[in-house]
């Protein structure tokens, strides 16, 4: 089992580098996008070293493509392993999705059909990644905008079986559950109750936007009240987890994110945020 870490953190984004480096900001950990630091050298890597000297760090990837039917990119895994060896992160995570096939890389988290064939392929890929990385990973549930007709199981069942077969853990993105549930018409509480709670090590809380017909996981808004309600529902069912606010666009001043993180701490203690 992957060791637990109980705490409240933020995603580290460029506009806030200086504040995190110059002050002791009251977060328990920071999460960074792995690919931004899987570079040969220069300032980005040095900034991450300096951040790591001050805060625990989780590595969160977007390009491993664990759902690729043609396997994983060996060069990618080697670079990630090098970064892991240097940073010694709390967790290493990526998404239940695919981005790459036969030399094409979409740079978008694309959906998988939840079939036995997909499960076998994802298990093979996760096993290989964990072998190369020398540690177990966390896999995050994605936001999806398509469902495939030949599905053999629900997403939460798929994730549960993946954890059982590979020993990986879960990064549970509560906003993604809400977005997918709204887009596909399932009950988000059934999803949250159905994921294997004992494997959850990290939680993402984020905002979304309403598109013409679907909710879109834009990470450019504060956490929605409905997502806070789902967080309050799942939190008491979990063991110690690392909980964080994930904001990727329309990034506000750090103080606003810290206020949102304080709301997460209060929600975990049973004091729910209310609509503004």
């Amino acid at each position: 089992m992957i060791p637990s870490f109980a705490g409240f953190g933020l995603g580290l984004r460029k506009p806030h580098y200086a504040e995190f480096l110059e002050h002791r900001v009251s977060v328990d950990f920071l999460e960074v996008i792995s690919e931004n630091f899987m570079v040969d050298g220069g300032r980005p890597r040095q900034i991450l070293r300096d951040i790591r000297a001050r805060y625990p760090v989780a590595l969160h990837g977007v390009s491993m493509s664990i759902g690729s039917a043609d396997g994983l990119d060996a060069a990618y895994l080697t670079r990630l392993r090098n970064l892991i060896d240097e940073i010694e992160p709390l967790f290493v995570s990526d998404h239940l999705s695919w981005t790459r096939i036969e030399g094409f890389n979409s740079h978008d988290l694309l959906p998988l059909p939840y079939t036995e064939e997909s499960l076998a392929m994802v298990c093979t890929n996760v096993d290989r990644a964990q072998d190369v990385l020398g540690r177990a990973m966390l896999i995050e549930n994605p936001s999806t905008y398509l469902e495939f007709a030949p599905a053999d199981m629900s997403e939460w069942t798929f994730l549960g079986r993946l954890c059982e077969r590979t020993g990986c853990g879960l990064l549970l993105d509560v906003n993604n559950v809400f977005v997918s549930a709204t887009n596909h018409g399932f009950d988000p509480r059934a999803y949250l109750d159905g994921v294997p709670h004992e494997h959850v090590r990290q939680i993402h809380l984020a905002g979304h936007s309403r598109g013409e017909q679907l909710l879109v996981d834009t990470h450019d808004q504060p956490v929605a009240l409905t997502v806070w309600e789902l967080f309050a529902h799942i939190w008491p069912q979990l063991g110690p987890v690392a909980t964080m606010i994930e904001r990727d666009d329309n990034i506000p001043p750090l103080a606003e994110l810290l206020a949102e993180l304080a709301a997460a701490r209060r929600a975990a203690a049973g004091d729910m945020p209310v609509a503004a």
């Binding site: 096939i101 036969e102 094409f104 979409s106 978008d108 694309l110 959906p111 999806t144 905008y145 398509l146 469902e147 495939f148 007709a149 030949p150 887009n183 596909h184 598109g211 013409e212 017909q213 679907l214 879109v216």
Partner: peptide, 27 residues
């Protein structure tokens, strides 16, 4: 899916048997 993203190949999108076709536009 690659053919849909790169060439907006409608036939490729139809072959995927996906529900919620609005999602293709999002991707």
């Amino acid at each position: 899916m690659r053919a849909w993203l790169v060439h907006e190949d409608e036939a490729a999108a139809a072959r995927m048997g996906a529900r919620a076709h609005a999602g293709f536009g999002v991707y």
